[in-house]
Design a protein around this nucleic acid. Sequence first.
DNA 1: GAATTTATATGAGAAATCTCACATCCGGAA
DNA 2: TTCCGGATGTGAGATTTCTCATATAAATTC
Lengths: 209, 209
Amino acid sequence: MDRIEEWSRELFSFDVRPFLEERIFTPGEFILREGSFPQHLYFLTQGRAKIYTTHKNGKVSLLSFPAAPDLIGDMELLEVRRGSLCVQALTRCHFWVVDSRRCLPQLREDPKFLWFLCNHVARRSARQTSTLTIQQAYPLRNQLAAFLLMASEGDRYRQRHTEAAEYLGVSYRHLLYVLAQFRQEGLIAREGGEYRILDRAALEALAAG
Amino acid sequence: MDRIEEWSRELFSFDVRPFLEERIFTPGEFILREGSFPQHLYFLTQGRAKIYTTHKNGKVSLLSFPAAPDLIGDMELLEVRRGSLCVQALTRCHFWVVDSRRCLPQLREDPKFLWFLCNHVARRSARQTSTLTIQQAYPLRNQLAAFLLMASEGDRYRQRHTEAAEYLGVSYRHLLYVLAQFRQEGLIAREGGEYRILDRAALEALAAG
DNA sequence: GAATTTATATGAGAAATCTCACATCCGGAA
DNA sequence: TTCCGGATGTGAGATTTCTCATATAAATTC
């Protein structure tokens, strides 16, 4: 496969292929589980997963939906986190898996890879900053508007409400409440099993705060 | 100053001193302002600052209180953020300032520095993940307990309520409400201008969820 | 020192959000 | 097919949190 060669040349200064393995996870399968200590770096090349954590009070926080191309296991490589999150495949997921334990010395000396990693982690941090402050400053109404726009394909929105609630950090009940409000205001409409965006401009205005 | 030399040897493979400058900010002074594009990396060696952002609806989110040793301007160096945050000195702040524009080529090739940067950014991201999910899953009661323990020195808590409210992402009114609750339950007591922690164990239990 | 701002404090009522209860619908497993 | 767990939807009432008004104390400015 020369896709691998091209890709590995782009991200690494050294030949990473000896430490590389291709791997496929089926829907529902765990890439990382709470309490596990991965020794690998997972490059998601195809598919979609979800990252979440469960709290002592039983609530689940859905952190993100990584989709190809993305990187999983970076925080664990940097040893800033120790198995506090779950990563689970949503669709069939293809990975290029780097045995980071075996090639850690090379990784630590590879400016090309490290620059990529810095950018990757920093981008995630910037997203989190934004999510965190928006969540502190606005009610669900505004956040949901942004989420509808972000998670819809064209005018169609078809996410599981259970997942959306966990992602937005509100109760299922309240999510349905605000969705009903939007419907009543003519911003969205239900069509069979999914929703259709009727007034994109109004949602964008809400999302912008 | 050989403190600088020692420090620069620890973080950089190349001689960073030609690009280095020492700088002091007085309390209240801005290190970064909203809308500015810093071309520098600020190593906080002494003092304490605050990072915040203001939303369109007027609310202020206090993100963190960087204290020495810490790093400011890293996200901007990596170009994942463009002047959306304010950083303001709380106490007199001493910095070692690297002119990152002039030495960007060296920085991008320096695995020692990049490894440090990765770790730094990743640690911040891990903190944010934790903050974000805890905030989604628990009411102020629990978060405040954690904050009191974190922000107190010994048994004494003496933070500005205005700042605490912005940091915790709740209204001033509500913060006072829950503080009064804690007082009534005998967890804390007011002593002059400050508070004293009476029942650390109970607070720890609350903080743990 | 007077004036002005900023922080502290508290009340009342409204809005946002949560919990729990219950009904329906659908897809997969036996 | 039947059964069952999960997802959807809705109601009622409780809890958390917000907004606004108001008052005083402390700090800053002039």
